[in-house]
Design a binder for these strands. Structure first.
Lengths: 340, 340
DNA sequence: CGATATTGTGAAAGCGTTTTCAGAATTCTA
DNA sequence: TAGAATTCTGAAAACGCTTTCACAATATCG
């Protein structure tokens, strides 16, 4: 498999097949009928010369990059990673290629990354989470098809793919209540500091509403803020414990914080689920493998990625797919026990 | 921030600044001196018209894509992910952009992905793991700078970035021996089925040598094969238990299998570390947060990624950086206890 | 102060495709 | 079977930049 195709151009193969470059281009892209004879001659020449079209020339001439920009916030978080995987799968078989950029949850970085992607003339854009405001997204939409994943932005809701986070929070809390728990702590994440977690806030609201519906008080002493990372789950539990308010269950706004919480409890000799029950959100891959396996609310990350990919392809082709919210559902494992 | 720059070309801004396109190009790339007056006029025009160069035209004309191809095997495995993160960081600030492809540990997929990357005319290539044979890599090297991460390929060792996996296996096993363990099980991964894990095999060898050096027998009944995923760790422990050979410690060839093992032990009511000690390899992010926190051999994934990025940039610039193997070192946490 | 370097600049020729346009060849229609 | 409709095909003009070349305009030297 030589790689010295460096210089083989469409003209070479045109000459070799005794046709014009236009014709070669036609069989390459299947953009018009070409007689059987010439077609095979061309294909043979391509084979023989190991011809590979120059993508830049193609893009320049056609105005298409055959590329989908994917703007994520956290390469490396299991949840975002699932989405990425789904996108990869969804794009497979299409002629489009994903191009990733990482906004790292910093608005400035995110904007910069977005521009790089746009400079790269992506044919479509998938934005995962982030903080770009609706207005900006709307203006992008004028020139570039767009799908937003894991975030709900009212003005362009028909371009958004998300789970109902309110229901997620509600379901988790409700389950704990049904299991007899009355003092349920919650680890949330700040919503002020621009870390733009509407998702997390929705879960928080679900938590509160579930309590209200069960005529249970919302006790501020049982609510702590983390930052979505494991370590903050550890800290959150320390904090909870230091406040001295008794609780028999913890609902963490994501699995990573739940993992941290679980470790902190272990350190204090508090057993899960015998002493304290624990519920997370996301159903990360490792949730099923911690000890005890974590009961959590599943966000169908991979599926969302797949759907996002299919959707952006559809938009690019001028279609208008219906984007329906995903259902989050409780995955019952072993980190919750009935309160006695 | 309008995005209707669609049509602003270098010619427009040349006209606006009363210069020729050549001159604009010169200030754009800083490829030659331009008088102060024209320079500022040009910059102003760029600003005003919100000009963004067309990357395809640039690449076509210059022959450079300003892109680094990154071929990974497993988007989503924490270890590979760390490397990716490192690459992202290492590339930051350079004008190069990474382009990812996933070989999924299938030789066919990997080859295909490689070709797509090469078609994309990447200026450099970082290959993480994989099974491409030395010959093929060697031929790529003729046209494209290359760095291989997390894999040691003798004929092009000066292009490889890896940790000494033999030492990793040795260190883990030795530690267990030093802690008084005499019956140490090992969960490895198949090396036959083309899943090309020389790394894992090296760890296995380290394990064996450590036993030999301590005059301990190598007991085939204490060796099981997994596939590097959590679930296989579960199965491995089941298998081990069913064989009835007593053991007081397990060395798993990677953290994910260690996690699975830990779960299986929990299911059987076997305590870690009181009854059985456990050691993994990788030091994945979650290793510090499982219960009990896992003692493991750290592979500096992020650092390797960073170095790989720096190295490929150096190669592109015609330099020849020295690539020295990384050290793996034991991270002692709480999953091992002294054997009584 | 004329000859020689140096610096800044524009014209124009690529880079390797796609695509429009028009004409040639073929097939169809009445 | 003449004319009309279809199919194929090639020439040539984009696409938006970079870069070579040559030539002014300056600066430098003996």
């Amino acid at each position: 498999m030589t790689t010295e195709n460096k210089k083989v151009t469409i003209t070479h193969i045109a000459k070799m097949a005794n046709v014009s470059p236009s014709t070669v281009s036609r069989v390459l892209r299947g953009s018009a009928e070409v007689s059987e004879a010439k077609r095979t001659a061309i294909q043979q020449a391509i084979e023989e010369l190991q011809y590979r079209p120059n993508i830049f020339a193609q893009s320049l001439a056609s105005g298409q990059s055959m590329t989908i920009g994917v703007l994520t916030q956290n390469f490396g978080s299991p949840f975002y990673d699932g989405i990425l995987q789904g996108i990869l799968q969804g794009l497979e078989g299409s002629d489009y290629w994903p191009m990733f950029a990482d906004g790292r949850w910093y608005e400035k970085v995110e904007k910069h990354a977005l521009h790089l992607l746009l400079d790269r003339r992506v044919d479509g854009l998938i934005i995962i989470g982030g903080q770009l405001d609706a207005e900006m997204l709307h203006s992008i939409l004028k020139t570039t098809p767009l799908v937003v994943v894991a975030r709900e932005i009212p003005p362009i809701r028909n371009r958004c793919l998300y789970v109902n986070n309110y229901e997620a929070g509600y379901a988790a809390t409700r389950y704990l209540i049904d299991m007899g728990h009355r003092h349920i702590a919650h680890i949330t994440a700040p919503t002020i500091n621009k870390i733009a977690i509407d998702d997390v806030e929705k879960r928080f609201e679900g938590y509160k509403q579930a309590l209200i519906d069960a005529s249970l008080p919302i006790d501020p002493h049982l609510i702590v803020e983390g930052n979505l990372l494991q370590q903050s789950g550890v800290l959150a539990v320390e904090m909870l414990l230091s406040r001295g308010r008794p609780f028999s269950a913890i609902f963490a706004a994501n699995d990573q914080m739940a993992f941290g919480a679980r470790l902190a409890l272990y350190r204090r000799g508090i057993r899960v689920p015998e002493d304290v029950s624990l519920v997370g959100v996301d159903d990360e891959p490792s949730a099923a493998y911690i000890v005890p396996p974590l009961t959590t609310v599943r966000q169908p990350a991979v599926e969302m990625g797949q759907v996002a990919a299919k959707a952006i392809l559809a938009f690019i082709n001028g279609k208008t797919p219906e984007l329906t919210p995903f259902k989050a559902h409780l995955v019952v494992r072993e980190s919750v026990s009935r309160y006695r």
